[in-house]
Deep mutational scan, measured.
Amino acid sequence: GSPLAQQIKNIHSFIHQAKAAGRMDEVRTLQENLHQLMHEYFQQ
């Protein structure tokens, strides 16, 4: 897949890990990143 698709997959797993660790501030930051990446992805 594209590097962007790979990045989106990575962030999904980072979010999963951050949630499991209870780091909600990190989850929020990652979700904002994910949102931006998704936006770029669909602009392609």
Rank of each mutant, 00 (worst) to 15 (best):
G1L: 13
G1A: 11
G1S: 12
G1P: 11
G1M: 10
G1Y: 01
S2H: 11
S2F: 12
S2V: 13
S2T: 12
P3E: 15
P3T: 15
P3K: 14
P3R: 14
P3C: 15
P3A: 15
P3Q: 14
L4D: 02
A5L: 15
A5G: 08
A5F: 14
A5N: 07
Q6W: 02
Q6E: 14
Q6R: 05
Q7E: 08
Q7M: 13
Q7Y: 06
Q7K: 09
I8C: 06
I8K: 00
I8Y: 01
K9A: 11
N10R: 12
N10W: 10
N10D: 14
I11L: 14
I11C: 11
I11F: 04
I11R: 00
H12M: 15
S13K: 14
S13A: 13
S13M: 13
S13I: 14
F14M: 15
F14E: 15
F14D: 14
F14C: 11
F14P: 01
I15C: 10
I15R: 00
H16E: 15
H16Y: 05
H16G: 10
Q17R: 08
Q17S: 09
A18F: 03
A18P: 00
A18S: 03
A20F: 01
A20P: 01
A21K: 07
A21V: 04
A21R: 07
G22S: 03
G22K: 04
R23C: 09
R23M: 08
R23Q: 06
R23L: 09
M24R: 05
M24T: 07
M24C: 14
D25Q: 08
D25H: 08
D25I: 05
E26M: 09
E26G: 02
V27P: 00
V27M: 06
V27N: 01
R28M: 09
R28P: 02
T29Y: 08
T29L: 12
L30E: 01
L30K: 01
L30T: 00
Q31L: 14
Q31T: 12
N33V: 15
N33K: 15
N33S: 13
N33E: 15
N33R: 15
N33L: 15
L34D: 00
L34E: 01
H35K: 13
H35R: 14
H35M: 11
H35F: 07
Q36A: 11
Q36N: 10
Q36T: 09
Q36W: 08
L37W: 02
L37G: 00
L37D: 00
L37S: 01
L37Y: 02
M38A: 03
M38G: 01
M38D: 01
M38E: 04
M38K: 03
H39S: 07
H39P: 01
H39K: 13
H39A: 09
E40G: 03
E40L: 08
E40Y: 05
Y41K: 03
Y41M: 06
Y41I: 06
Y41V: 05
F42E: 09
F42H: 10
F42D: 07
Q43L: 10
Q43W: 07
Q43M: 09
Q43R: 10
Q43S: 11
Q44H: 10
Q44I: 11
Q44D: 11
